[in-house]
C-alpha cells in the first residue's frame, strides 16, 4: 500500500458517520440502504483492511450454500469467515445436495439454520435470498440470486471507488460493455444515487442501458450521457472506467456481434490522455475486454478490486451478525 493509499484509508476511517438499522440483519439487496448505511459499511471495510485478522467470529459457524457454483465469490466469503476466526460449513454445488433430489429451498434453509449462525447463499433463482430471509431464524447474506441482486459485489465496487478516488461524491463514471443484462452496473446506479455521480453509458446498440434504468436516473437527478463509440476521446474525463463483458449469447443478431465484438475492448494506448486519478474496474472474470497490456498500467485496478471484496465481506458478515 502506498502512502497515498494509507492516507485515504485514514480519511475513510475518520470522516464517515455510521448508522445502521438494527431491525433486520439480513442483507438481500442494497435498495433499503441510505447514504449513511453505505458509508458506514465502507468505513467498517476500511477497518478490516487495516487489520484483516480478528477473532470476532470465534465460536461462530457460518454456512455458505451455493446452489449455483461461483468459486470466486465463495472463496472470498469463506476467506472472510476464516480471517475472522469463524468456521464454515456448506456446499459449493447444489448437484451434491438434497435440493437436487427435490428438497425445497425452505427445507434446506430450515435444516441449515439449526447448525449455523449466519447463512451466505447463492442461488440461480431470482428472489431466493429474499424468501430465505423471510423463513430463516438466522440472518441471510445474498451472494447472488440469478440475474437479480449481488450486493457484496456492488459494495466492493463502491469501496474500490472510494479508496482510489478518496471520495464517492461527484465522480465521472464510465460504464462500458453489456449494460442491458449487466447486473453489477444496474445495482451500481441504485447505490450511487446518494453521491451525485455523472454516468457515461458506452455499449453496443443491442446492449444499451434499459429504459427503466435511465428513467431511474432522471427520477433521482443522476446525470448521464450515452455513447456508441468507445475511444480515447470519449474517456478523457473519466475518474472510473467500469468494464464488463460483451457476451456472444446476449446477441439476437450474430452479425451485429461480429461487427461490434472488438469495438468495446480497452487497450493500453487508449489510456495515454486520461486523467491521472483514473482507475479501471472490472467485476472479473475478464475474457478479452481488457487487453493484457493494460494490466501493468498503474490505472488498472481490477485485481486489487477483487482483493477489496475480502474486507467488504468481513464488514458485511459482522454487520449481519450484529457484532460491530
Amino acid at each position: 500500500m502506498g502512502t497515498n493509499q494509507k492516507q485515504i484509508l485514514k480519511h475513510i476511517l475518520s470522516n464517515t458517520d455510521y448508522s445502521m438499522d438494527n431491525s433486520s440483519r439480513s442483507l438481500i439487496s442494497l435498495e433499503g440502504l441510505d447514504r449513511n448505511d453505505i458509508l458506514g459499511l465502507l468505513r467498517q471495510a476500511a477497518t478490516f483492511e487495516a487489520k484483516p485478522d480478528r477473532k470476532i467470529l470465534d465460536g461462530k459457524v457460518v454456512a455458505t450454500l451455493f446452489f449455483e457454483p461461483s468459486t470466486r465469490t465463495r472463496l472470498s466469503f469463506e476467506t472472510a469467515v476464516n480471517r475472522l476466526g469463524g468456521r464454515v460449513i456448506g456446499f459449493s454445488d447444489a448437484a451434491t445436495t438434497s435440493s437436487s433430489k427435490g428438497e425445497t429451498l425452505k427445507d434446506t434453509i430450515m435444516m441449515v439454520s439449526n447448525y449455523a449462525d449466519l447463512i451466505i447463499m447463492r442461488h440461480y433463482l431470482e428472489g431466493a435470498a429474499k424468501y430465505a430471509s423471510e423463513i430463516s431464524p438466522v440472518p441471510i447474506i445474498n451472494a447472488g440470486d440469478g440475474a437479480n441482486q449481488h450486493p457484496s459485489q456492488t459494495m466492493l465496487d463502491l469501496y474500490s471507488m472510494l479508496k482510489t478516488q478518496g471520495r464517492l461524491d461527484g465522480l465521472e463514471i464510465f460504464l462500458v460493455g453489456d449494460l442491458k443484462y449487466g447486473r453489477t452496473v444496474h445495482s451500481m446506479l441504485t447505490a450511487m444515487r446518494f453521491f451525485n455521480p455523472t454516468f457515461h453509458f458506452i455499449s453496443p446498440e443491442e446492449l444499451r442501458m434499459p429504459a427503466e434504468y435511465k428513467e431511474f436516473c432522471r427520477e433521482n437527478g443522476i446525470r448521464f450521457t450515452e455513447h456508441s463509440e468507445f475511444n480515447e476521446n470519449v474517456i478523457s474525463e473519466a475518474d472510473i472506467i467500469y468494464m464488463t463483458r460483451v457476451q456472444r449469447e446476449r446477441f439476437t443478431d450474430l452479425m451485429e456481434y461480429e461487427r461490434v465484438k472488438d469495438s468495446f475492448i480497452l487497450r493500453n494506448d487508449m489510456l495515454a490522455g486520461t486523467k491521472p486519478n483514473l482507475r479501471i474496474l472490472h467485476p472479473l472474470p475478464r475474457v478479452n475486454e481488457i487487453s493484457q497490456d493494460v494490466d501493468s498500467n498503474p490505472k488498472a485496478y481490477y485485481f486489487q478490486q477483487a482483493k477489496n471484496g475480502l474486507f467488504v465481506r468481513e464488514a458485511l458478515i459482522c454487520n449481519a451478525l450484529n457484532l460491530l
Binding site: 425445497t104 429451498l105 425452505k106 442461488h123 440461480y124 433463482l125 431470482e126 428472489g127 431466493a128 429474499k130 424468501y131 440470486d145 440469478g146 440475474a147
Partner: peptide
C-alpha cells in the same frame, strides 16, 4: 411472469 422467479419453483 418471470420464469426464473423463486415463486414459480417453490411452494410459497
Amino acid at each position: 411472469c418471470n420464469p426464473m422467479c423463486i415463486t414459480n419453483h417453490e411452494p410459497m
